[in-house]
């Protein structure tokens, strides 16, 4: 589940996929700083062909939030 999303997160933050879960956040992932956060946005937008609004971007506190916003943009994470 959510393989594509986890691949992107793992690449951007240079961590193992097994380290990622819904609760992963800037507190649990050391490399998740504001700059890498924006790189993640850029990667997600390009991969899923969507565009987040500013409020969506600053609202993200953990991976669960990312999934919620992706779903709102019609991205199916169950493939």
């Amino acid at each position: 589940m959510s393989k594509k999303l986890y691949d992107i997160i793992s690449k951007v933050f240079s961590i193992q996929i097994s380290e990622i879960n819904d609760e992963s956040s800037p507190e649990t992932i050391e490399s998740w700083d504001s700059f890498n956060g924006l790189i993640l946005v850029d990667e997600l937008e390009n991969s899923f062909n969507i565009k987040f609004s500013i409020s969506e971007i600053i609202d993200v506190k953990n991976v669960k939030d990312i999934k919620r916003h992706l779903k709102n943009h019609g991205v199916d994470l169950n493939d």
């Binding site: 504001s34 700059f35 924006l38 790189i39 850029d42 987040f52 500013i54 971007i57 600053i58």
Partner: peptide, 14 residues
Amino acid sequence: YRQFFIGDIKIAFD
């Protein structure tokens, strides 16, 4: 504009 407002980035990542 989004990168500018969020991080004062004036040359987009790409």
